[in-house]
Simulated assay, not measured.
Amino acid sequence: MNLNLKNPIVFLDLETTGVDPSKDRIVEISLVKVMPDGSREVKTRRLNPEMHIPEEASAIHHIYDEDVADCPPFRAVAKSLWAYIEGCDFGGYNSNKFDIPVLVEEFLRAGLDVDLRKSRFIDVQNIFHKMEQRTLVAAYKFYCDKDLTEAHSAEADTLATYEVLLAQLDRYPELKNDVDFLAEFSARGRSVDYAGRIVYDEKGVEVFGFGKHRGRSVAEVFRTEPSYYSWMMNGDFPLYTKKVITAIRLREFGNK
């Protein structure tokens, strides 16, 4: 089976220094770009995170400081990478919650204000959890009857994720072979920012998805408690989240 595509779709997996999009950096990125005609190409490269790779992270992906000492930093490949993925849709395993937010943060740090608002995001993990409740290794065995012997290798994980999605489409007739449908089905709520700090409520209003103001309108909180905006801007939040709340605040100023 081939995916029914209008645009190329890029499946991605990142190995990083940790799990915090606002702090951690990419040490390896693997992309599987699938074209509407079903052809695909794989690109994998390691990157120098310009920081120490914590031992607990290296224990998972087996990439150490010395392995990336001579590799380029993300900022050196940012423009060519964006040229390669611009206009594509995206897929991954837990990618909506982790890989996409981390990637966007890296672009912003490199000075590229990338726009993914027209892209669709298919999170294969969310489809899997809605259907079966498993991990990627188990998903690969369950759907493809193969053992994922190189788990936590970015390229192996990325290729496995793509195969799992194709197998999911074969197994579940209720899943439409359509990127818009799969993106909506695999979404968990509607996030305004990629990290899920700001989400849309049922009326399409931006509300906080965390903390003491969870569920409250962002614009309303900033009107009644301006210091909360300052706290977020000075806090350890992702750059894209800060961009989103600034846009909301400026919009409210313009409506006065």
Rank of each mutant, 00 (worst) to 15 (best):
204 G>K: 08
86 E>R: 08
67 D>P: 07
210 F>W: 14
135 T>K: 12
141 K>G: 14
246 T>G: 00
116 L>E: 02
203 K>N: 15
67 D>N: 13
227 S>K: 14
140 Y>A: 05
5 L>H: 05
155 E>N: 06
165 L>C: 04
15 E>H: 14
115 D>T: 07
250 L>H: 09
183 A>S: 12
44 T>Y: 03
208 F>T: 06
225 E>T: 13
17 T>M: 12
172 Y>N: 07
29 I>A: 13
18 G>R: 10
44 T>V: 09
205 V>S: 07
132 E>S: 15
109 R>P: 10
95 S>W: 03
114 V>T: 02
218 V>S: 06
186 S>E: 00
102 V>G: 05
223 R>C: 02
214 R>N: 15
76 A>Q: 06
171 R>P: 06
204 G>P: 08
85 I>C: 02
49 P>G: 08
2 N>S: 13
244 V>G: 02
169 L>T: 09
221 V>Y: 13
64 Y>I: 01
129 H>T: 09
106 E>P: 01
74 F>Q: 05
200 Y>W: 09
197 R>Q: 13
144 C>N: 11
243 K>Q: 02
192 V>C: 06
249 R>L: 05
23 K>A: 14
163 E>A: 15
226 P>Q: 10
151 A>T: 05
216 R>W: 13
186 S>A: 04
254 G>E: 14
186 S>H: 06
213 H>S: 14
62 H>A: 12
201 D>E: 11
185 F>G: 01
121 F>R: 00
177 N>C: 10
185 F>C: 08
3 L>P: 01
63 I>N: 03
247 A>W: 06
83 A>C: 09
212 K>L: 14
228 Y>P: 05
85 I>T: 13
67 D>H: 14
226 P>S: 11
8 P>N: 11
24 D>F: 09
14 L>R: 04
123 D>Y: 08
26 I>S: 10
42 V>R: 02
193 D>Y: 03
86 E>K: 15
242 K>P: 03
115 D>A: 02
148 L>N: 15
23 K>T: 08
94 N>T: 04
107 F>N: 05
117 R>D: 13
209 G>P: 06
85 I>L: 02
172 Y>E: 05
133 Q>E: 14
75 R>K: 07
174 E>Y: 15
245 I>C: 00
181 F>L: 06
185 F>V: 11
170 D>K: 12
159 L>S: 11
232 M>Q: 05
159 L>G: 03
173 P>E: 09
133 Q>T: 12
25 R>G: 07
222 F>H: 06
235 G>L: 12
43 K>A: 10
154 A>F: 05
60 I>V: 12
40 R>Y: 11
100 I>Q: 00
44 T>Q: 04
164 V>K: 09
116 L>C: 06
129 H>C: 14
178 D>L: 04
196 G>I: 07
152 H>T: 09
218 V>W: 06
208 F>A: 06
206 E>W: 00
234 N>F: 11
25 R>N: 10
134 R>W: 05
85 I>Q: 04
12 L>H: 00
156 A>F: 10
70 D>M: 12
210 F>G: 07
196 G>P: 02
1 M>K: 04
118 K>W: 08
41 E>L: 09
222 F>K: 07
24 D>Q: 09
75 R>E: 13
30 S>G: 00
130 K>N: 04
139 A>S: 12
198 I>Y: 08
12 L>N: 00
34 V>T: 03
172 Y>W: 11
236 D>V: 10
101 P>S: 03
91 G>Y: 00
172 Y>H: 11
